[in-house]
Design a protein around this nucleic acid. Sequence first.
DNA 1: TCCAAGATATCACAGCTGTGATATAAAAGT
DNA 2: ACTTTTATATCACAGCTGTGATATCTTGGA
Lengths: 206, 206
Amino acid sequence: MPKVVDPVERRHAVVDALFRVVVRDGLQRASLRTVAAEAQLNIGSLRHYFATHEELTRFAMASMIERVGGRLRASVDEAGDLAALPPADLLELAVRLLGELLPIDESRRAEVTVFLDFAAASRTDPALRDLAERAAVGMRGFVRLVLERLGSRDALRPGVRIDVETERLASLVDGLGMNAVLHPELVSASDCLDILRAHLGALACP
Amino acid sequence: MPKVVDPVERRHAVVDALFRVVVRDGLQRASLRTVAAEAQLNIGSLRHYFATHEELTRFAMASMIERVGGRLRASVDEAGDLAALPPADLLELAVRLLGELLPIDESRRAEVTVFLDFAAASRTDPALRDLAERAAVGMRGFVRLVLERLGSRDALRPGVRIDVETERLASLVDGLGMNAVLHPELVSASDCLDILRAHLGALACP
DNA sequence: TCCAAGATATCACAGCTGTGATATAAAAGT
DNA sequence: ACTTTTATATCACAGCTGTGATATCTTGGA
């Protein structure tokens, strides 16, 4: 017999409500009361699952990081199998992998939007700093892995410095995501993919 | 005889105080009261120069955009004169120009920090949207100008698409600035310049 | 059936916010 | 000298915030 209310599911629903508030009105407006209203919960109920505001925001940010990280790991694993591809398809595979971090559809757009607000807040909110750093380090590890797999298949130009290219690509992805979210009329989803393709193409051997 | 208080100077001092608060505690904490305290003004005095909070933040963001824009225009004009340079120096000149937008020293770091907070806020604050868009468009105009000047001196690889390269470089600069501000232990000032140099180098003819 | 634990809900309170209204002081213009 | 801006300073108020404390209802297990 299923429990009447699953605490894990409740927490998840609350986090989802917080994400909706952040996307719509910004993290600044995600108070306990507004999130409770969005989740159709009484604030007392909400506080039964998240005692403080800090606990809620930390859990929400950690959930987001874990969700994205899990998806990236799954994509990498899946791509690992079918990797005996011609160079052209190899690049397109890298585009697909890195595209996971770009706002190319509504759900990813929401994700990047939430990430941006959390990242900006983490600069001055000590409760979020370690999470932001973990996310940044993890993201660079992922970017580096993609580049190294390209390099190990001799798909990269000789002489590229892996450290420089990792940060260049990571910052490009972050910048593209940021601008696509903040200025969708300037940078569309297909612009993101075009530019990412151009970047990887320039990195590949001639 | 000088006026006892110059209103223009006062407004400027208030905006500077707001910038300090934003750098230290984030835009979220830049209330009329905290800014007044930082400027060592009574809140009533502050409101004599900025009637509402919206007026203050708009004026501050516009000031920041105008300051950066002016500096960029001056740099471009100054560089325009001594432009009969060998290709290598030409690239280094482009690095210097675009480096104006990166947190490579304390004052520029403060500038990028403030810009990031304002940009993030502009997504959900209608009072700041037009300013954020103007800044983004202006920044792309500047990046495009630098690229076109390189192209007109045959310093660019043939076949580059100017639209793609403009947005790629603009987003790279934004992403670098963001990560250098949010994760200084991951991306240092010299990392920024190294990566910018590598990017322009890859764009140049072989 | 009874009890403990979990879930939902309400109230209270201090602290901050923007803003309207107003009072006083200083300077400028005539 | 008088008047009109300009500047500085307080007070008040409603609205929001996080949070502590508490009450009521619901469910699961013995």
